[in-house]
Write a protein that binds this DNA or RNA. Structure first.
Length: 443
RNA sequence: GCGAUCGUAGCUCAGUUGGUUAGAGCGCCGGUUUGUGGUACCGGAGGUCGGGGGUUCGAGACCCCUCGAUCGCCCCA
């Protein structure tokens, strides 16, 4: 590589091959599950006015105070590359009058940007899938959203990840709890870690999350949210948990789980790999694979009418790491033309076969030996060799790549054996799928 | 933003206390059949040792800076 060659920007990635297949698999699976739950697809701009995020997430959060890609456009407006989806969706809900569709279930995916120190599973341009229910105050919405997340992870074949669930209560419960936490931690302030001393002012809830050994002794006796929950908030949380049980979604209570963004109320959750599991290993220090909660105050914050909402987002790269590397699907037909006349014929043949929904690759360059090897490499079910002799006869050499058997068939005659070969291959694949689904059902 | 480790062919790595033309495996290209694969054998291409500066008679190996990756903290999906 020449030293003049430009390099990629720090924290961005170029994804190719098995990793890209895994990435696409995550998105495709999300799209499929999304439809099962009848979430509508939306597309969102990648940038917004800076205030959309500043007001939504909270000025003092790390995301807003030091991680946003903000810039002035030529008109002098301060714009920001979206660091998350929810704020922009809430803004769209208001500016487009989507109230008329409430309760609105929507899903999307795409790139997000955060100026952070890159690490495994943490990038400056990263990608998320996202699901939101806006305008639904009932716990049923939380349950449905979590059931969808749970099913998504199962469909992706991800194991060893569990739902950690907490409630932050309604606005009043949360404030009362927050005040009690500040009181409690202020009493032992000089014994806390430097980080937590700072958190005491900025975001006391986060102290509960601390991994610092100096903070640990004070955590068990810290005030619990449960003591501050209003009757409504308690009833709400009970409805969520019993709904999850009924839906067959496994969860554990995580009293210390809080979320970093200011807009969360009531339900807060994260799917986290179990300690020591392969999943935990694959993710390194980035433990949360999917997270979210209820944000009843957000839309009001942006100047709208009070509107309840719940949502979650999941990192596509992180999910892809848990999925592991995937191979591209096998090729159906490799066409190997020998000579110019044969090339022209292969192009029309390829068009016909592709119209019939067979995947086709024309291998027109290199020696026959090399091309056959490439057909094999691509996992072709069949190879069609065409040369001057075949053109004269109106035939093709049809080779079953599995058995190696080759026969000369009329051009029209290839469809039937081709269908036999590909369905045999697909049936074998389906048998495996059914077997693994049966295993899943047994659990 | 803080602390630590690392950076040699496309990939995974080896390069002894600094010393002549920097190596291996896999991959790639070619040959052993001028139109045929998965094995075997033979041959070949490919690296300004992340970049810049310094120490030295001499540096891939030592020092400094820089860029990047990885690990932990922080944060978060």
């Amino acid at each position: 590589m020449s030293k003049n060659t430009p390099k990629a920007i720090r924290g961005t990635q170029d994804i190719f091959g098995p990793d890209a297949e895994a990435f696409a698999y995550v998105v495709e699976t999300f799209e499929r599950v999304r439809k099962l739950y009848r979430f509508r697809r939306i597309e969102m701009p990648v940038f917004e006015k800076t205030e959309v995020f500043a007001r939504s997430l909270g000025e003092t959060t790390d995301v807003v105070s030091k991680e946003m890609y903000s810039f002035e456009d030529r008109g002098g407006d301060s714009l920001t590359l979206r660091p998350e989806f929810t704020a922009g969706i809430a803004r769209a809900f208001l500016t487009n009058g989507w109230q008329q569709h409430a309760p609105l279930k929507v899903g999307t995916h795409g790139p997000l940007f955060r100026y952070e120190r890159p690490q495994k599973g943490r990038y400056r341009q990263f990608h998320q899938i996202d699901a939101e229910i806006i305008g639904a105050a009932e716990p049923q919405a939380d349950v449905e959203l979590l059931a969808m997340a749970d099913q998504l992870l199962k469909e992706l074949g991800i194991e060893g990840v569990t739902l950690h669930l907490n409630t932050l209560g309604d606005g009043e419960s949360r404030e009362a709890w927050r005040a009690a936490l500040i009181d409690y931690f202020r009493g032992v302030k000089d014994q806390l870690s430097e980080d937590s001393q700072e958190r005491l002012e900025k975001n006391p809830l986060r102290i509960l999350d601390s991994k610092d050994r100096r903070d640990q002794p004070f955590l068990p006796d810290a005030p619990k949210i449960d003591a501050f929950l209003s009757d409504e908030a308690r009833a709400f949380f009970e409805a969520v948990t019993s709904g999850l049980d009924a839906a067959g979604v496994k969860w554990v209570r995580a009293e210390n789980l809080v979320r970093g963004l200011d807009y969360y109320r009531h339900t807060a959750f994260e799917f986290i790999p179990e300690e020591g599991s392969a999943a935990a290993d694959a993710l390194g220090a980035q433990s949360t694979v999917l997270g979210g909660g209820r944000y009843d105050g957000l839309i009001e914050n942006l100047g709208g009418a009070p509107t309840p909402a719940v949502g979650w987002a999941a990192g596509i790269e992180r999910l892809a790491m848990l999925v592991g590397e995937l191979e591209a699907e096998n090729l159906d037909v490799a066409i190997i033309p020998m000579g110019d006349a044969a090339l022209a014929l292969s192009q029309s043949l390829a068009a016909e076969l592709r119209a019939a929904h067979y995947s086709v690759e024309i291998l027109a360059t290199g020696k026959a030996k090399k091309r056959m090897a490439r057909a094999n490499e691509a996992g072709a079910a069949a190879a069609l060799v065409i040369g001057d002799d075949e053109i004269a006869e109106g035939t093709v050499q049809f080779k079953d790549m599995q058995s190696g058997a080759q026969s000369e068939l009329s051009r029209e005659g290839i469809l039937e054996p081709l269908m036999e070969l590909t369905t045999a291959r697909d049936m074998a694949f389906l048998d495996d799928e059914i077997a693994s689904l049966a295993d899943l059902a047994d659990e």
